[in-house]
Design a protein around this nucleic acid. Structure first.
Lengths: 199, 199
DNA sequence: TGTACATCAGTGAACGCGCGTTCACTGATGTAC
DNA sequence: TGTACATCAGTGAACGCGCGTTCACTGATGTAC
């Protein structure tokens, strides 16, 4: 985390300012929320002048996109791993990740909303990986259209729960059911998404 | 909409600036999104000086809350009506409303997240009404805990679909399934939320 | 190995902007006598 | 009906702020000969 490869050239001045800015931005988002994020604050956090980011990002929105991309990559890797090991439900992994990084997840979601994506279908984008992970959790025997609907349904359920799990309304129910994790499992189970491994 | 009761006193100066500000704010949110909302812009939209809103709201966040409240009241009324008439699923009504007012729904959601709410349980708050509407759609024969989980699950599913239905990813699927409404029904059906009236 | 030059990632000062909020004020409305 | 006064919803100017972005610049790094 601290330094990548010591063999790699540390770069010209900073080393790898682009990556440093993305990570500073992510830190700020996770700490303060996305509305508190400003390019100047990111530059400050990275210990660099306010103009420096403009050598790496066209504008603020491009930096936000890079932060979101990093999140999607991370999430899709996790889901992939979970789906491959068959040891837990990808849907649960999705919700857990979103719950662990709520502000980042919001940034990811905002970035995803307007992306066309899936143009060539068989992509190696993070979104395609997430989709495949949900596919792995579905019943592959269904007709293509139903299968696609199952994926979308699972994704929607995971998104909805991920965002609503923070609701104070559900505090008591969450406690009665046995804590956050049991709550997630229970609700996803109800929605047909959690193929629980072994309770 | 234009004027309430002509018999009611038009008030001191403006008439009913508080309501006018909430409506101006809502108009701005729906047109530009919540991030574009500023107190000054709302005052401008209402044709009033920048300081005027301070006679009706402590600060900007209080105005936003009022806008959110108006939305929740409207939505809960709609769901109530739908549940009473048994002619359509409250879950579908929820998603339709959110889809029709996406930016407003976002404001509503943000306001709801941190509300404790449901303290005395049997309330007449908008949230309690929404909850009751989801309850009406569930199988009332279940054990209390399961019933509560069913409500939460339905709410989460509706929220997730409401936000994700805008995804460009799903454009093609939406078309293949027969348009937005069929898409909503299909996904909610999959999640066990849409008790469709008559297909 | 040494010099001249091109590249480019940084700096720091500056711009114009819209914001939330405060303030002393004004003037219309409602009330007491 | 008329006058004096209290109330209070508005005004408009001003504050200080952090923002996104631009600009001319500097100085370290890499490259050609």
């Amino acid at each position: 985390m601290s330094d990548s490869e010591p063999s790699a050239p540390r770069g010209y001045h900073h080393g790898d300012l682009r990556r440093a800015l993305v990570e500073a931005g992510r830190r700020l988002v996770e700490a303060e929320g996305s509305t508190a994020l400003s390019l100047r604050a990111v530059a400050r956090e990275a210990g660099v002048s306010p103009a420096a980011p403009y050598h790496h990002f066209k504008d603020k929105s491009e930096l936000l996109e890079a932060i979101a991309d990093q999140g999607w990559d991370e999430l899709s890797d996790i889901m992939d791993a979970v789906a491959a090991q068959h040891e837990s439900s990808p849907g649960v992994a999705y919700v857990r990740y979103a719950r662990a990084h709520p502000a980042l997840y919001r940034v990811m979601y905002d970035a995803a909303r307007d992306r066309l994506s899936i143009p060539g279908e068989a992509e190696d984008s993070a979104h395609a990986k997430v989709r495949r992970a949900f596919l792995a959790a579905a019943d592959a025997a269904e007709a293509p259209l139903d299968l696609e609907l199952a994926i979308v349904a699972a994704w929607c359920a995971a998104h909805g729960l991920a965002e609503m799990a923070a609701f104070k309304h559900f505090h008591r129910l969450r406690a009665e059911v046995g804590g956050e994790d049991a709550f997630l499992q229970a609700v996803l189970g109800r929605l047909g998404v959690a193929r629980d491994p072994r309770p």
